[in-house]
């Protein structure tokens, strides 16, 4: 009986990911290097933005992954809530620092890009502001995980926080939209937009996005393995103390 749920068994998860991880790591490195080198060395400058357009190959993928990491955490938390699979809760925990780093990269590259283009490092623009708030949510989530000792209670409480946080993060997104019309341009990647990014930029950008997605998956698998082992260590130590 092959189904997704068999990976809820920590042993099975460790086995399978142990086999997959090296392949995935090589693939990630390859895609990222190809994408970033292509983006950095072999793309033309934009006629308005000059060379700063090259920052897009970091900015857009990291911003995408910052949001998707939160979504992944939400899904994993819900799986934990419904089916009580520990691996799922640990995967949510493992994803949070990766998401936080992605948020930081998106904000930092955005600031560096904004400086020459808008003449300011930071503006209280809806997109920037909601990313900052997303970063705060990541911080709170990580802090709550590390503050609670009982692992099951920690998983439950962070699940509740993740669900409430998702609602409030969405709410904040629309609230800041109302609050301030921004400097930031609209979506650069949408299916129906007339005015999309031109192909010369688009294809290396897609490679970079694929690289960031792969990087996220690899890191989350690696970190989930670590969390499973850490959990086993604390269980064994507790048993030794009891004996």
């Amino acid at each position: 009986m092959a189904s997704l749920w068999q990976y809820a068994n920590p042993q099975k998860f460790l086995q399978t990911t142990g086999a997959v991880l090296p392949v995935l790591a090589v693939l990630t490195a390859l895609t990222l290097v190809v994408g970033l080198v292509w983006g950095f060395f072999f793309t033309p400058d934009d006629y308005r933005q000059g060379a700063t357009v090259k920052i897009i190959y970091l900015h857009v993928p990291s911003a995408l992954m910052a949001i998707n990491a939160w979504l992944m955490m939400l899904v994993a938390s819900l799986v934990w809530l419904v089916r009580r699979h520990h691996v799922s809760a640990l995967a949510a925990r493992a994803a949070a620092p990766v998401g936080l780093t992605m948020t930081a990269i998106a904000l930092l590259t955005g600031a560096i890009w904004g400086q020459p283009m808008w003449g300011t490092w930071w503006a209280w623009d809806p997109r920037l502001t909601s990313f900052l708030i997303l970063g705060l949510f990541y911080l709170g989530y990580i802090a709550l995980w590390s503050a609670i000792e009982n692992p099951d209670a920690a998983a439950d409480l962070t699940t509740v926080l993740c669900m409430v946080g998702s609602v409030f993060a969405l709410l904040s997104r629309y609230a800041v939209n109302f609050w301030n019309q921004g400097l930031h341009q609209g979506a650069s990647l949408s299916m129906d937009a007339e005015e999309n990014v031109a192909d010369v930029f688009y294809i290396p950008l897609l490679v970079c996005i694929a690289g960031f997605v792969l990087l996220f998956i690899t890191l989350v698998l690696l970190r989930t393995r670590t969390e499973i082992r850490a959990r086993r260590i604390s269980a064994l130590l507790a048993r030794e103390r009891m004996a």
Partner: peptide, 19 residues
């Protein structure tokens, strides 16, 4: 920890209230 968790959640209320 409580303030770290709660303050981002206060954001929308603060924004609309002050606005």
């Amino acid at each position: 920890l409580l303030s770290l968790l709660v303050l981002p959640l206060y954001m929308p209320t603060l924004l609309f209230g002050a606005e």
